[in-house]
Amino acid sequence: MSAVKYTRDHEWVKVEGNIATVGITDFAVQELGDLVYVELPVIGDEVRAGERLAAVESVKAASDVFAPVSGEVVEANEALDDDAGLLNESPMDEGWIARVEMSDPKELDALMDRTEYDEFVKEASH
């Protein structure tokens, strides 16, 4: 199963086996504007769903990225260290932020699919 799931804080998560790849959505990136810095999580850190996983900074402001699922950080996208603009160019793909080895995959059930997320964004921007 590799369907993409979404949070109300505008993170996305893509699951392969027990590994969740996490990023922020195209909508979030558009709202934030030019991204200039990403504070990546430390590999080996234990995160819990809803806690701060990373931070993304635009010219104007810093925003937290929350972990959509609990687990251990097994990889961070170091390409973002050199070029945070990758997030603007490819938020849903090359601009992924971290990979988490899930401790409780059932947490995914609480997340939205794309249709639900699009609906959520539409309502939120009213």
């Binding site: 504007g33 030019d34 200039v36 635009s58 010219v59 104007k60």
Partner: peptide
């Protein structure tokens, strides 16, 4: 307007 296209570009 805080920006039109991009703060970096406008800067």
């Amino acid at each position: 307007p805080v920006q039109y296209t991009s703060i970096l570009e406008e800067h």
